[in-house]
Design a protein around this nucleic acid. Structure first.
Lengths: 159, 159
DNA sequence: TATTGTTATACTCTATAACTATA
DNA sequence: TATAGTTATAGAGTATAACAATA
């Protein structure tokens, strides 16, 4: 591996095309177990379940969020959000509050400790891995532009 | 949701740099829930647990693999491989066989049905999403090269 | 003694269905 | 009647510790 060869065929006759290789490598890079490990450590330290640490990402900067909306962000069921927010509340990271006008809705409000924690979670998930330093500024821009292009085809996510 | 905003800065004054944006978008694209969905469907159809479908990827082309090695590939504990191979065996997708020389080791051998299934799993996980058609051949090559560069910093993974 | 795999167990992830309160 | 959240429950993911067989 790592040998730049004439692209398009290999000795087994199996053609691994450029897009496939790019895709496989993208998956490998982004599924970095280290990120999960860091998040796990954060969760352990804070006394929350790992799923709650992931959720913190969406609770970080915005105003209080309805539980239902968190479920949409996490693409999980409402009932799991109950579990997550239970964990956050038990650890003193967040609390439920009633919505001002619609009393069916509960919003999730971070405590001060929660805001700090959320910032760290955001940083863990949002910080590019060290390998990005291998790219020149120009290459980084090219990469970003390619990602924008790939992302622009995002599924319509009806509703 | 779904509102496209000016990218690069948000109302809080936080500037999101190029690498961070590239990274976040990469993660979003590669964590496509549709891939998981397809794999889930395959698992349902074959009567195996979803984790076993992921494992098929590593069992596809190679010769019989020791359970321990599958654990390393999946980065999970041996005990979970027991669960996975139980599932594969119950569904008639694979069977355990004794290693020729070291009788502590059991190797996983795919059945004919298993080989077919493994090919499909490989295809699901290895096929780039439709959005890749948005890239020109030249752009695809650039992307692949960038991924090679990023991947070259991969952790040494001793042993 | 060290290694491979299994068993028992426990915690977490996540969803479905039934339910309560509110709209 | 429809919607937000909760409860009960269950299957799946996953790890740790103790164990058996083999090296």
């Amino acid at each position: 591996m790592g040998v730049a060869r004439t692209i398009g065929a290999d000795e087994a006759g199996v053609v691994k095309d450029t897009a496939t290789e790019a895709w496989e490598r993208m998956r490998e890079i982004t599924h970095d177990p280290q990120v999960l490990g860091q998040l796990q450590a954060l969760a352990d330290e804070a006394g929350i379940i790992p799923g709650a640490a992931k959720a913190l990402r969406f609770l970080s900067t915005t105003e209080p969020m309805a539980m239902r909306r968190l479920a949409a962000n996490l693409r999980c069921d409402n009932s799991y959000v109950t579990t997550i927010v239970d964990s956050l509340e038990e650890a003193g990271v967040a609390r439920r509050e009633a919505h001002a006008t619609d009393r069916r809705i509960k919003v999730i409000v971070l405590t001060d400790a929660g805001r700090t924690l959320a910032g760290r979670a955001q940083e863990i998930l949002g910080t590019p891995p060290p390998a990005f330093e291998l790219l020149s500024p120009a290459e980084t821009e090219i990469l970003r532009d390619l990602m924008r292009k790939l992302g622009s085809a995002a599924k319509p996510t009806s509703t």
